[in-house]
Simulated assay, not measured.
Amino acid sequence: MELRQLEYLVTVVEEASFTKAAAKLHVAQPGVSAQVKQLERELGQELLDRSGRTVRPTEAGAAVLPYARAALAAVADARFAVDELTGLLRGRVAVGMVTSCAPLGLPDLLADFHKDHPGVEINLVEDNSDRLIAALRAGRLDTAVVGLAGPAPQGIATETVADEPVVAVVSHDDPLAGRTGLAFDALRDQPLISLPRGTGLRTCLDEACAAAGFAPRIAFEASDPNVLAQLAARGLGVAILPGSLAAYHRATLHTITFTGPELRGRLALAWRGEGPAGPAARALIERARRALAPVRP
């Protein structure tokens, strides 16, 4: 049994594909298949179900996976111990982010980390919070900035980096523009402009509507909060935005706070509860926890 075989097995499971795993590992796909088959022969069991459109672990494969990951983590830790003595750090870190986290300074954080640790390969992807959390659980990401409407999901550790009110915004000539406060129930028949499902802000909206006894009437959806602001400014409905973004667009938008219940949205740095897989990821997470100072207006 070789570490390479364990690495290939784990990567195929994470990518649910031999082809994608080979691309991620920068090796030929037949080589990945051959090494996994050799591992299966040695263990006397099929570890992967190749019958469907995606590759999944068999019962035996699922039993082997935790030990494979532990072995790879142990090797990474041994390398990290040596790297600490020599001032080096190597490896790969996969980072995720939601669209609305740009003001937190994540690009600067990643650039500074790369400057200090040029031997670490950094990958960044953007997605909604639900899919980022799923990727964290599956091991495809090491850490991510996600939006949360409530407690942290099971198995995910988080540290809040922004906590602010969620508000409604309308154009200055909208009939609601004369209001500074609004009971949430008043949105019952209003055309709403919101982020898509799977985002923290949308979850916050959907839960508040459900608590008030109605389903939101979503007229427009966009993944960029600035687009929501622009749609509202053109008189197309009531946009639901973080308070800081509403303040940024105050020249074209009128902000209305909710008088009950108050809505708050959070951005959080998230990672797997049992810890990241490698030393490079741990180093980046520790730096991110120091650098992404909480914002709670």
Results as ranks from 00 to 15, higher is better:
residue 156 I to P: 00
residue 158 T to M: 00
residue 159 E to G: 04
residue 159 E to N: 05
residue 160 T to H: 01
residue 162 A to E: 15
residue 164 E to R: 02
residue 165 P to Y: 06
residue 165 P to M: 02
residue 167 V to T: 05
residue 169 V to L: 01
residue 171 S to E: 10
residue 173 D to A: 08
residue 173 D to V: 14
residue 174 D to P: 04
residue 174 D to T: 09
residue 176 L to K: 01
residue 177 A to F: 06
residue 179 R to D: 10
residue 179 R to M: 13
residue 179 R to C: 05
residue 180 T to E: 13
residue 190 Q to P: 00
residue 190 Q to I: 01
residue 193 I to R: 00
residue 194 S to N: 10
residue 195 L to I: 11
residue 198 G to A: 03
residue 201 L to H: 08
residue 202 R to V: 03
residue 202 R to P: 00
residue 204 C to T: 15
residue 205 L to I: 09
residue 205 L to C: 04
residue 205 L to D: 07
residue 206 D to Y: 10
residue 207 E to Y: 08
residue 207 E to C: 02
residue 210 A to D: 13
residue 211 A to I: 11
residue 214 F to V: 08
residue 219 A to L: 07
residue 220 F to P: 00
residue 221 E to K: 01
residue 221 E to N: 04
residue 222 A to R: 11
residue 224 D to E: 15
residue 226 N to A: 14
residue 227 V to A: 14
residue 229 A to F: 13
residue 230 Q to A: 15
residue 231 L to E: 14
residue 234 R to M: 12
residue 236 L to H: 13
residue 236 L to S: 09
residue 236 L to V: 04
residue 237 G to F: 08
residue 239 A to W: 03
residue 239 A to M: 06
residue 240 I to G: 00
residue 240 I to A: 00
residue 240 I to E: 05
residue 241 L to C: 03
residue 242 P to E: 11
residue 242 P to Q: 10
residue 242 P to V: 12
residue 248 Y to G: 03
residue 249 H to S: 09
residue 249 H to D: 11
residue 250 R to L: 01
residue 251 A to F: 07
residue 252 T to H: 14
residue 258 F to P: 02
residue 258 F to S: 01
residue 258 F to V: 10
residue 258 F to Q: 07
residue 258 F to M: 10
residue 260 G to L: 10
residue 261 P to S: 01
residue 261 P to G: 04
residue 262 E to W: 03
residue 262 E to F: 03
residue 263 L to C: 05
residue 263 L to Y: 08
residue 264 R to W: 09
residue 266 R to V: 12
residue 268 A to M: 06
residue 268 A to Q: 11
residue 270 A to W: 05
residue 271 W to A: 04
residue 271 W to I: 02
residue 272 R to H: 15
residue 273 G to V: 07
residue 275 G to K: 01
residue 276 P to V: 10
residue 278 G to Q: 14
